[in-house]
């Protein structure tokens, strides 16, 4: 059969990073070099990662398309597939099909300031586009990253947060919820919306990219509005349940939109025109 849309690429785990007590990052390489050669994707897209015998699970591609020859994904142990993934070792094979979905319009953002706001395990969907724009740093003006988690232990990509912090042309603000700090914590203490309001980045010529749990989005949106951001300049990704990735299985259908085809990246303007089923 020439065109089996459900057939995954075989990937080998090249590296495993323990991000938090229950989250890991895998660096995956294509087992077939020809497939690696042909494979391309853009920031914002996702894939179906599978453990044979357990099933498929949907996450974004967390590495930047500017970094060739591998892809990375970050996941939290939550269900059958992610638990099986967490038990895998370097060298093991897993399945991957993708890339699916739309992309962050980074070409349209050229010449603008970028404000990234993420909470907890929602940094991975944004990490791809953050690195993508850092790798093309000259095309963008100020880059600000606001990242918060429940506690210091829940911050993912700690090594990269350090790298971003050390970059002179990146403004990084990290925060943990009150009570989540450690004695040597140097970042902010407080919820993301409040920290954002205090930092008060300008909305002038700026796009905001927002990813986080529903409750964070709910309270951050009014802050962005207050700062003067327009709905069309606020981007987020939806995390609806998905199975097929082709707009057929029906699971991610929100109004006439299929999150797997028309998303996962949406502007707030688009979200406001959709039924609240995400």
């Amino acid at each position: 059969m020439c065109n089996n849309i459900y057939k995954p690429y075989l990937m080998q785990i090249d590296q495993i990073i323990d991000e938090t007590s229950d989250a890991k990052t895998f660096r995956l390489k294509f087992k077939n070099p020809e497939e690696a050669e042909k494979f391309t994707f853009k920031a914002g897209q996702f894939g179906e990662y599978s453990v044979f015998g357990e099933g498929e699970s949907t996450f974004c591609i967390a590495s930047s398309p500017t970094r060739k020859d591998y892809i990375e994904c970050t996941f939290r142990k939550a269900g059958r597939v992610t638990n099986a993934l967490a038990n895998m070792e370097v060298g093991d094979t897993l399945g991957f099909r993708g890339p699916y979905g739309n992309t962050f319009p980074i070409e349209e953002w050229e010449g603008k300031n970028l404000l990234y706001i993420a909470g907890g395990i929602a940094l991975p969907p944004m990490r791809c586009v953050i690195w993508n724009t850092i790798d093309l740093r000259h095309k963008y003006k100020d880059i600000t990253i606001v990242y918060g988690a429940r506690s210091v232990a829940d911050l993912v990509y700690k090594h990269e947060l350090k790298a971003w912090e050390e970059m002179p042309d990146i403004r990084l603000i990290t925060t943990v919820d009150p009570g989540g700090q450690t004695p040597d914590w140097k970042g902010e203490i407080g919820f993301v919306p409040m920290v954002l309001e205090k930092a008060a980045p300008s909305s002038e010529n700026t796009v905001a990219i927002l990813c986080g749990p529903p409750v964070m989005i709910k309270f951050t949106m009014p802050v962005l509005k207050k700062l003067g951001f327009k709905d069309k300049d606020i981007f987020t990704t939806l995390e609806n349940r998905m199975k097929c990735g082709f707009g057929k299985c029906g699971r991610c259908n929100v109004g006439k939109v299929f999150v797997c085809k028309d998303g996962p990246v949406f502007t707030n303007e688009q979200l406001l025109s959709m039924p609240m089923e995400y």
Binding site: N4, Y6, K7, L10, G95
Partner: peptide, 18 residues
């Protein structure tokens, strides 16, 4: 939609013969 053999570092996937 697919058949497979799970062999840790050498899994294989077989297509369905349509």
């Amino acid at each position: 939609v697919i058949f497979y053999t799970n062999n840790k570092n050498d899994s294989t996937v077989t297509d369905v013969d349509l």
